[in-house]
Design a binder for these strands. Structure first.
Length: 209
DNA sequence: CTTTGGATCGTCT
DNA sequence: GACGATCCAAAGG
């Protein structure tokens, strides 16, 4: 038995973890660790997107150059550029040819705080370093250069680890943020009470516990 | 505290 | 030519 805060063994999530629907994978990504460039963050907020089933998904209208990674094999990172200045990162789910993904919306800083603060100059509170999908990419140093990276194979530049911290039994949930269509679907989940979550209070949110 | 508007450009129509 | 799976500063209560 290890006391709270003591470091535990980290294991990379297997390919089969991602080879399922995004609605199943998303809440189970909560409390997993994202690692890149010597920086580590704990995933505390996610959203599911479902290709052809989902009018809010980038993949809804079929494959393009931009969304190609979403249609690829599971366990890869889909990074897109938006609003002329921001990157956002997703984990690809389901077998090749089926485009489902989980958007990473917020991380809790774990390791590499100095690098994160440097990448997010002007931000004074550490809870605001990664409290949004574009903020976390900036803090972690993730750009379009990381699009398509395999999260599973040894030697990957980006990886997702399980360090033994369980996902919430009953995560908080709400509709997805910043979309025009299907905003009523409760496909956003977060760790209840975590101070790094982007928008804890939204209409129709379920608190979790 | 909440609301509003500007930034800025790749992508698809 | 229009529009983002956003962020931030400034203005308003």
């Amino acid at each position: 038995m290890s006391a709270p805060g003591v470091s535990r063994r980290r294991r990379v999530l297997a390919r089969r973890f991602y080879d399922r629907g995004a609605l199943e994978v998303a809440p189970q990504l909560l409390n997993k660790l994202l690692v890149h460039g010597g920086r580590v963050g704990r995933i505390v907020e996610v959203e599911a997107y479902r290709g052809s089933e989902d009018p809010a998904s980038h993949a809804y209208r079929g494959p393009t150059a931009r969304n190609a990674t979403m249609f690829g094999p599971p366990g890869h990172l889909y990074v897109y550029f938006t609003y002329g200045m921001h990157f956002c990162a997703n984990v690809v789910c389901m077998p090749e040819g089926i485009a489902e993904a989980v958007l990473l919306r917020a991380l809790a800083p774990v390791t590499g705080l100095e690098a994160m603060r440097a990448a997010r100059s002007g931000i004074d509170k550490d809870t605001e370093l990664m409290s949004g999908p574009a903020k976390l990419c900036q803090a972690m140093g993730i750009t379009r250069a990381e699009d398509g990276v395999d999260l599973v194979t040894a030697g990957s530049t980006v990886a997702v680890f399980d360090d033994g911290v369980a996902s919430p039994t009953l995560p908080a949930s709400s509709g997805r943020i910043g979309i025009r269509h299907a905003s009523d679907l409760p496909w956003r989940w977060w760790v209840p009470g975590d101070p790094n979550v982007s928008r804890p209070r939204v209409p129709g949110a379920r608190p979790g516990r």
